[in-house]
Nucleic acid binder design. Structure first.
Length: 758
RNA sequence: GGGUGGUUAACUCAGUUGGUCAGAGUACCUCGCUUACAUCGAGGAAGCCGUAGGUUCGAGUCCUACACCACCCACCA
């Protein structure tokens, strides 16, 4: 053995060894254990890997995957038939955004391609880099069964997703509705509520005067969006606001287009805010939409899907809302309709989570899933304790969300995703709006009935970019084209619709052997940020399809921050590449830095190079403990006795007793997922008890053979306990000292206490 | 507006039913290159456990209020 442990060489060598013996597959490790006479039990244990993006390198957050790996390794050593099932995600929207940025550099945009071409190009892009994440996960030591790797867009996943959609459709859970959606004109797609956020912004608040019809009087309304005045349909005041009593039932004149707007009463209006009068614009505001519904007001829009003001916005047609706003303000000012402007009004601007670009609330036909019945089941299961969340607060959080949940808009207007199995009969829908690229590369948009006069149906379908069917249009649910006169819905499924079925699709619901054997799974770990997005959806979907929860334990870990507890971000320049640390200090050290150096259950966990370096030193320490034993073994030709045969003296008994205590407390802590406590205990015992005390004593002892036999026993039991934390160095040492015939450490029996009676 | 988490040594954090609970790692200081390891060893300094009250024989630990930090949900134009 070398004086220093070489993690770079050893980690590569050891990972190959595990792969060579096929020990990551449950069958492989199970049969090896059986053959070697190790403990086996008939129970299975399954951990699903949250699929990382197929095409992106890992970031520090992915180091938390070592939590799953640790849990899987412990169970494997305990004799469970253990499956750690990996996969990768297409990350539809995320990937498309990355690809679009790439296109932009080449002077192009998504709008230059028909949808099938764009999809293929993005898929190729993903495939070029698809092994990146997997290779890096291997470097971290993940003991996942890569032969079972599932990619989110592969056929069996897509087929299951379609099965589910068809079932939901038959069950009447799918509907299409004109609904206020979070539309990003920049990205060209809608977002769910979870994918939007409010950004503190300072914008001018304009006080606009609306003249009362037939009177000299006027009503003043405060708004940050005067450009939408064209789409106003009413003015609302609070019923208890006596200031406006005399105006109820009267009408005001729209200062921009001269239209007549009724003055209505609605309890939503806050009399304290602004002037107490609110302009109602159902086409461009969520609350106004609801108020409009209550009062049966029309829905007008003046902003198109392209983000530009429409024809209805007369003077500012074709402009983007911001410049349009400036121009409208000028117009209002000139007309004397602008009372005043509060330049420093602070408010929350609705933006998308990805780029922080403004969200335009727009009424748009979308596909929805009725959630009420689905969530009831989930709420019940969680309340019954069928899933252990470990920390009560996550259970509370998920229940709160489930109880407030609204219907789920599952259609996205992006190309890179699973296409919806929906087809429209074009003959029956002449006003179906279609955008397509002709063979000269020119884009056309219009009603299908009119386009067909000029272009053939096949030409249109070949260049299709987007289809928007009017509300109530007939459609057919089908995976394949029902005929030449049908055109496919261009919307794709929300990524979370497919990943929400991950436990089912990966295992092969409904009848695959793996599904029958491993579902429901046992352990799920993610960060709290996708508790609603993913965990909740998986629970809902599993209960819907199988009546069972998808997993029994949910471990929610915190965000990985830099050493000062700050979020890692490119702009702050504090991003750590986990692979750098793996290279510098070893995957074991990195794993320990996270699992033991911090508390992964906290909201945040700080990761620092210092910590990792400390655990690299620990790896070297235990390496040298082995060297110490090997040195004596060789020099004095010792043959270790098995622990049962040793006539123990007092010091031996003491150390063995302490080992028993360690095993007990490690089991205890792991049982409660107190991972860092378990790791800390092993660390302390090996370094400060075994090395600093027991080994130092041995140097003085005369009965070296006996003492070293005890030491060997204690030390190797510690290696086993430590293995799930630091799989590489422990296995490497084991390979050096245990002899060629010993089964690899990864599948050796988990330590149990020994009897010290008599 | 509603809610959650946090505030313990210079830094990152433990401290699980109130009574060796004032701890660990890193950093720091002193000494030591002693044939397992200097990626080491021996030793050391270091904290009014956020603030103010309260319960108790006894409180980082329970209660109340407050302050500050971080985050989540909702969004009043």
């Amino acid at each position: 053995m070398n004086k220093n442990y070489n993690h770079v060489k050893a980690e590569e060598e050891i990972y190959k060894l595990w792969e060579k013996y096929g020990l990551f597959s449950p069958e492989g490790s199970f049969s090896y254990r059986k053959k070697a006479g190790l403990n086996t039990r008939e129970e299975t244990f399954c951990v699903l890997m949250p699929p990382p993006n197929a095409n992106a390198p890992l970031h520090c957050g992915h180091v938390t995957y070592t939590i799953q790996d640790l849990v899987a390794r412990v169970k494997r050593m305990r004799g469970y038939k253990t499956l750690y099932l990996p996969g990768t995600d297409h990350a539809g929207f995320e990937t498309q955004v990355v690809y679009e940025r790439k296109l932009k550099k080449g002077g192009k945009s998504r709008l230059d391609f028909d949808k099938d071409t764009l999809f293929t190009e993005i898929l190729n892009f993903v495939e070029e880099n698809s092994d990146l994440a997997i290779d890096q996960l291997k470097k971290l030591g993940m003991s996942a069964d890569w032969s079972r790797t599932v990619f989110m867009l592969e056929d069996k996943v897509v087929e299951t997703v379609y099965d589910t959609f068809e079932k939901m459709h038959e069950d009447g859970l799918i509907y299409r509705d004109n609904y206020m959606v979070n539309y990003s004109t920049f990205h060209g797609t809608t977002f769910s509520n979870l994918e939007t956020t409010h950004k503190e912004t300072i914008s001018p608040l304009y006080y606009v005067k609306y003249k009362v019809k037939g009177e000299e009087d006027h009503v003043t309304v405060a708004t940050v969006r005067p450009e939408t005045i064209y789409a106003d349909v009413a003015i609302a005041v609070n019923p208890n606001d006596s200031r406006y009593d005399n105006l109820i039932g009267k009408k005001v004149i729209n200062p921009l287009n001269g239209g007549e707007l009724p003055i209505i009463e609605d309890g939503f209006v806050d009399a304290e805010f602004g002037t107490g009068a609110l302009k109602i614009t159902p086409g461009h505001d969520f609350n106004d939409y609801k108020i409009g519904e209550r009062h049966e007001l029309p829905v007008l829009t003046v902003i198109g899907l392209d983000g530009k003001m429409t024809e209805a916005a007369k003077e500012v047609e074709g402009m983007y809302p911001k410049p349009a706003r400036r121009k409208v303000v000028e117009i209002l000012e000139r007309a004397g309709a602008l009372e005043k402007t509060d330049e420093n009004y602070e408010h929350g601007l609705l933006v998308d989570y990805k780029d922080g670009r403004p969200i335009e609330p727009l009424p748009l036909p979308n596909w929805f899933i009725k959630m009420e019945g689905l969530t009831q089941k989930a709420i019940k299961s969680i309340e019954n304790g069928e899933i252990d969340f470990y920390l009560p607060r996550w259970k509370r959080e998920i229940l709160r969300w489930l109880k407030e949940i609204q219907d789920w808009p599952v259609s996205r207007q992006i190309v890179f995703g699973i296409e919806m199995p929906i087809w429209y009969p074009i003959k029956k829908i002449p006003n179906l709006r279609v955008t397509f690229i002709d063979n000269k590369g020119i884009s056309h948009e219009g009603k299908i009935g009119e386009l067909l006069e000029e272009y053939s149906i096949d030409a249109i379908k070949a260049g299709i970019q987007r289809v928007i069917a009017p509300l109530g249009a007939p459609y057919v649910v089908s995976r394949k084209s029902p005929g030449r006169d049908f055109i496919r819905e261009t919307d794709t499924f929300d990524t979370w619709f497919s990943s929400g079925q991950w436990p089912l699709t990966t295992l092969g619901f409904p009848d695959n052997e793996d599904f029958l054997e491993y579902f429901p799974t046992d352990f799920m770990d993610t960060m709290w940020d996708i508790l609603f997005f993913w965990i909740a959806r998986m629970i809902i979907m599993s209960l819907y399809l199988t009546d069972e929860v998808p997993f029994k334990n949910v471990y929610i870990h915190g965000a990985i921050t830099d050493e000062k507890g700050r979020k890692m971000s490119k702009s702050k320049g504090n991003v750590i590449d986990p692979m750098d640390l793996v290279y510098k200090y070893g995957a074991d050290a990195l794993r320990m830095g996270l699992l033991v150096g911090g508390n992964t259950l906290a909201k945040n966990t700080a990761l620092s190079e210092n910590k990792v370096r400390g655990y690299r030193n620990f790896a070297n320490k235990i390496w040298n403990m082995a060297r110490f034993m090997e040195m004596y073994r060789e020099e004095e030709s010792l043959i270790y006795q098995s622990i049962e045969d040793i006539d123990l003296d007092k010091e031996d008994r003491e150390i063995l007793e302490e080992l028993n205590n360690l095993i007990r407390s490690v089991n205890n802590e792991l049982e409660k997922y107190r991972i860092s406590d378990a790791g800390e205990a092993i660390y302390q015992f090996m370094w400060h008890t075994v090395a600093d005390q027991y080994i130092e004593e041995i140097k003085e002892r005369k009965d070296k053979e006996r003492a070293l036999s005890v030491l060997y026993y204690v030390y190797t039991e510690c290696l086993k306990l430590l293995h799930p934390f630091m799989p590489f160095v422990t296995e490497k040492i084991w390979q050096e000292i245990a002899g060629k015939d010993a089964p690899p450490l990864i599948i050796s029996d988990w330590p149990s206490e020994i009897s010290l009676d008599g």
